[in-house]
Amino acid sequence: MAVQSSHTAFSFLSPLRSHSIVPETSLLSFKPSLVGYPFTATNRRRPFIITVSSKSNNELSVDKKRQLLEQYGLNPDEFLSEPSPKTKKRREQSKSGTGKQVLVEEPKPPRETHKLLQVVGGTARRKKLLSPKSMDVRPMMEVVKAAAFGILQAAGGCPASLRPGRWLDLYSGTGSVGIEAISRGCSEVHFVEMDPWVVSDVLRPNLEWTGFLDASVIHTVRVESFLERAEHFLGEDGSFDYISVTPPYAVVDYSILMDQISKSSIVGENTFILVEYPFRTDMLDSCGCLVKISDRRFGRTHLAIYGPKWALKKKYVEKTKRKQEKLDLLREVEISAS
């Protein structure tokens, strides 16, 4: 489309001739002052030229703009239609320079606690313990905890209480397992928990409430890091007598975790390891030099206990002894009945 321009006027080819789109400002902002004719005396066809001047300051009304656009064969709706809301918003943002607004995340509600747990046995029996209301921390069920300590006490040769020793509570959370251990006779417990809020608002208050803070050591670190640097955290204290492993089911690979524990310096020849694991999880029959002495199911929760070989032999002897006692009792009943 040819354009002829001067200092005060602009010329455009007619759309009737070239079917080109005339700029909106050329038709809506100016008044036509001169119209050329498409034919000359020689009957030679020439371009139809419209000359508009910018000298006039009078603004055209919408109706006149429509008439003018229709006069030259243009669709007024293409030039006079209202922009969409999105287009208006985009134009406003481009003018103000704001662009896309960044959404600000709402602050998370404060985490709360409640007292639903309690110490099952020992010196702090029936004392209530704090636990988070959310599902971030999953404490061991009381029935599982009672069964676990019953097995450990029997395996250690002292059914009434645990033999004195050091306990390591991995993934301690509320600290209910380690607190139970101190209540039943352990001399020292190391708690490993990575969540600072759980440590400050749940674990430490529970230790203060039960009076076991002086017998406790808290490590606010990931379990994997603790196992890798166990010598750094523990110094020359050596291995533990008891280790409890109660991790969150969904985020732990038990084969990798148990392999890491078995190779760590925290495990000794006489160590007992208590492992809580979910249904349909394959657990090995041994963990380093330790053997599995018990594997029980409580609904969807399983409890495996590893210990030294002498504990397994002792368990077998006790089981045989109980069986023999039952047989002797049945014989006495038969003799008395006859």
Rank of each mutant, 00 (worst) to 15 (best):
K133R: 05
S239K: 05
A148R: 00
I21N: 13
T123K: 07
L274K: 02
E276K: 03
S33I: 10
S5K: 07
I182K: 00
V275F: 04
R166T: 15
S244G: 05
N58V: 12
E78R: 09
V192G: 01
I305P: 02
S53Y: 03
K128L: 14
S29Q: 13
S94Y: 14
R45M: 12
L129I: 03
T174K: 02
V177C: 11
L80P: 14
R296L: 15
Y37E: 14
S94M: 11
R46K: 11
V104K: 15
A181N: 01
M141F: 01
V275Y: 00
T87A: 07
P38Q: 09
L207I: 06
V317A: 15
L129Y: 02
R44G: 12
F12S: 00
L168F: 03
S33L: 07
P38M: 05
R322G: 13
D195C: 04
M141N: 12
E269N: 12
M140Q: 12
F39S: 13
L28H: 13
N57T: 08
E236Y: 08
P38H: 06
S239I: 00
A2D: 15
R204K: 12
L170C: 08
L284V: 15
E193N: 01
L290R: 02
E231M: 01
R280M: 15
F10C: 06
I218W: 11
E332F: 06
R44F: 10
H114G: 15
H302T: 04
G178H: 01
E180G: 08
V104A: 10
V3Y: 04
P38S: 05
A9M: 04
K55N: 10
I49D: 01
E332D: 04
R204N: 10
M140S: 13
V189M: 09
I49N: 03
R44V: 14
L68V: 12
R111S: 08
E325M: 11
K263F: 00
S131A: 15
R138D: 06
V252I: 12
G235I: 00
N75T: 10
I179F: 11
G99S: 03
